[in-house]
Write a protein that binds this DNA or RNA. Structure first.
Length: 591
RNA sequence: GGCCUCUUAGUUCAAUGGAUAGAAUAGGAGUUUCCUAAACUCUAGAUCUAGGUUCGAUUCCUAGAGAGGCCA
């Protein structure tokens, strides 16, 4: 529909003012509710070409369109805005088309492969609220891209080695007394996290002691015995000391078990899991390659660098003088490693914005190395989730734990639902599923409705809403429509809605809103932004609720009209379901 | 110190350079004999400051204030 109007406008501009503008470049927007019409064209930019006043220009264009094409009912002009109104009949045909089409909103299949990497947990502590944003974003972006027609691979690069892992291991070795998750009645990841905190306490105590015996804080932080021991443990791990490796495997095993539960609760799965313990040595050969190509250079002490000052960045170390890797080294290697596994055209890294600079540098390096996929590298940089007191710090215990938060959401959903008492017919099992659907829906929607790039605030004292601009609001709308469909089966609906020629304003608004769905998906895929879908589906649900409230859907005598409204409701429900699925949120049939 | 990001109702979030800056929530006033009131209707309330570009700036540019991040 929009495409058609754009073509018309393009022709009009050429015929009237002999100005060439391709239909794609015509900008058209939906008319604001306060004004008459369905589509608005802004004429201000064309005044120089038409050499007329805004009103005259708009009038000329409007006249032209209405004379030549029969889809326009009327037009009006307010200053430089040309508001076009499309005939009701066209909208009924649009609805008919949507009802008839399979998979409305699904993008045409593209041959491009896209890898989406997200989650990237550390195996020294459980997942927290920040991870939830990361996971929901990554999962949703993958769903959106898949829906838009790309071939997707979801991957998770687990950070399972390094000094922080050794800290948990060391604390466990010292203070753990052989405790297991079963003994402690804790999930494996929570147990390991507990020892990570214990390490930090012991470490801080040692620092204090050193300071009181005269050391400077700086020295104390570097020479605390427990830290030195953790470092030596890392060295032993790298040398494959059997005892250390055995402990590492045992504790990581607990963590993986714990994570598996958490991912299952979140409803998230991956196509491939990579482990840093397999990739941390990669990249050194590429450093050699880069030296040969002249992309890198060697300093006198033997360290290898890249000079990015011509791109407004610094010089960056890519290999230490002693030949050991830095983060950048393994990330360079991992790029190729992932490409060998899945020859992607695009690769999306869902990583917090604290690493903006790191990825800028990494991508620039891969471009200079001439990698085929380097143009498709994209850092989906999302903002941190802040608490009212500032940033979350796992060591200081100011984290909102993912498992706890999800459980809290389920409990609240259960409580709300019972108070409303509308699901008495459901079995206990069905009710439990419903609580999870609603609780998780509220949480996911809460984290996804905000623009990913922006940092957001979460106040644990104020629980996440179930009313207003929320997941449950949208889910509720779907449940209502499901109820109508159940009722409609008892009615003799079967008219031919295509016979309807005049539409109520609410119906028209709804059809218009629904027909935008494919564009929304395309736009969200381009922007890697679930928030676009979230905002859209909320608007649609809100619009439907207004419709529902004011327009009788089943009580009309006119069969054609009832049929139209049932169909309209049904399509709305399908779009809601599809859009919510892009966010990874289920919609219930009743709630 | 260098670089990056952010600043919009009391609060949490919107707004491809376009019309009277939208929602939600909290506040005030209403709506249920009828398809699910987790809903709907009405009401009040905001663009950090100073310049600039433009027919038009929340959006772009410059400077300043405040918040956060990255790099040593």
């Amino acid at each position: 529909m929009d495409k058609l109007i754009k073509e018309h406008l393009s022709m009009a501009l050429e015929d009237l003012f002999s100005y060439k503008l391709s239909a794609e470049d015509v900008s058209l927007q939906p008319t604001r509710k306060e004004f008459e019409g369905t589509h608005t064209f802004v004429t201000f930019p064309f005044l120089k070409i038409s050499r007329r006043s805004p009103e005259q220009t708009g009038y000329a264009l409007g006249e032209y369109l209405q004379e030549r094409f029969d889809i326009y009912k009327s037009f009006n002009i307010v200053k430089g805005f040309l508001n076009l109104e499309v005939r009701d009949l066209i909208w009924v045909q649009t609805l008919d088309h949507i009802v008839a089409s399979e998979g409305f909103g699904r993008g045409t299949t593209k041959k491009r492969k896209v890898m989406v990497e997200f989650s990237s947990p550390n195996t020294n502590k459980p997942l927290h609220l920040g991870h939830l944003r990361n996971n929901f974003l990554g999962d949703s972006v993958a769903r959106i891209l898949r829906h838009a027609g790309y071939d997707i691979k979801k991957t998770n690069l687990v950070n399972d080695r390094g000094i922080h892992i050794c800290k948990s291991m060391l604390a466990y070795q010292r203070f753990g007394e052989g405790e297991t998750p079963e003994d402690a009645d804790l999930k494996g990841d929570h147990l390991v996290g507990k020892y990570y905190v214990i390490f930090d306490k012991a470490y801080k105590a040692e620092i204090q002691q050193l300071i009181s015996s005269g050391a400077s804080e700086e020295v104390a932080k570097k020479t605390a015995p427990i830290l030195l021991e953790a470092q030596s443990m890392l060295k032993r791990w790298e040398d494959k000391d059997p005892d250390v490796v055995a402990l590492w495997e045992k504790m990581n095993g607990w963590v993986y078990e714990g994570f598996a539960t958490t991912y299952a609760t979140m409803g998230i799965a991956f196509d491939a899991i990579y482990k840093e313990s397999d990739t941390y040595l990669l990249g050194k050969d590429i450093i050699e390659e880069g030296l040969e190509k002249g992309v890198f250079y060697k300093k006198d002490n033997g360290s290898v660098w890249i000079d990015l000052t011509d791109e407004g960045m610094d010089e960056k170390l890519v290999l230490r003088a002693d030949g050991t890797s830095v983060y950048m080294t393994q990330d360079i290697g991992t790029c190729d490693y992932k490409y060998d596994d899945f020859p992607m055209d695009e690769s999306v890294y869902v990583v917090g914005n604290e690493q903006d600079y790191h990825f800028k540098v990494l991508f620039s390096i891969m471009k200079r190395l001439g990698r085929s996929y380097s143009e498709g590298l994209h850092h989906l940089s999302y903002g941190m989730v802040d608490l009212p007191g500032g940033k979350m710090k796992s060591r200081e215990g100011t984290v909102v734990d993912a498992d706890d938060l999800m459980q809290e959401m389920f409990d609240t959903a259960a409580q709300h639902t019972r108070e409303l008492g509308k699901i008495d017919t459901l079995s206990q099992e069905e009710a439990l599923v419903l609580y999870k659907t609603i609780g998780l829906g509220a949480l996911k929607y809460f984290l996804l409705k905000v623009d990913p790039k922006k940092r957001m605030l979460f106040d644990p004292k104020e629980s996440i809403e179930f009313q207003g601009h929320t997941g449950p609001f949208v889910q509720y709308t779907h449940a209502r429509i499901a109820a109508i469909k159940r009722r409609a089966e008892q009615y003799d609906v079967g008219g031919d809605f295509r016979a309807v020629t005049e539409l109520h304003k609410k119906e028209l608004g709804l059809i218009q809103n629904i027909s935008k769905y494919p564009e929304v998906v395309e736009f969200a895929a381009k922007e890697y932004s679930p928030s676009i879908v979230a905002q859209y589906v909320y608007d649609l649900a809100k619009e439907y609720n207004g419709f529902y409230q004011e327009v009788p859907i089943l009580n009309e005598k006119d069969k054609d009209l009832v049929n139209l409204r049932v169909n309209l409701s049904s399509v709305t429900a399908e779009v809601i379901k599809s859009a919510m699925d892009l966010l990874g949120i289920d919609v219930p049939e009743r709630m």
